[in-house]
């Protein structure tokens, strides 16, 4: 199962929608850096099948509340997510 990491805002980049097109059942998606701005609007429907995470510190730094459907994690949990998934794919364009 793939771990997708999105680091760019959906308001300035197609990273999240490109990622959503590639997500398959059982994949996980982690929002980091400006990628956490995805929390401020509806998530793409195609991501319904994915487990969603965001970096708690990056969301807090931007004043964004994390909804219950998304798990806020720290760096240590991010490392373990990387060990639990293969491959790990970063989306940043």
């Amino acid at each position: 199962m793939t771990l997708h990491i999105v680091s760019k805002s959906p308001f300035s980049s197609s990273a999240l929608s490109d990622c959503a097109n590639a997500v398959r059942d059982g994949d996980a998606l982690l929002l980091i850096e400006d990628g956490v701005y995805a929390l401020s609007r509806e998530m793409p429907e195609k991501l319904a099948a994915a487990k969603l995470y965001c970096l708690a510190a990056d969301a807090a730094a931007r004043g964004l509340a994390v909804p219950g459907s998304i798990e806020a994690i720290d760096d240590a949990r991010w490392v373990s997510l990387c060990t639990e998934h293969h491959p790990v794919v970063s989306w940043f364009k």
């Binding site: 990491i5 990387c82 060990t83 293969h86 790990v88 970063s90 940043f92 364009k93």
Partner: peptide
């Protein structure tokens, strides 16, 4: 490596 993690621009 078991994992290669990319940190984009």
């Amino acid at each position: 490596s078991d994992r290669l993690i990319t940190f984009g621009q």
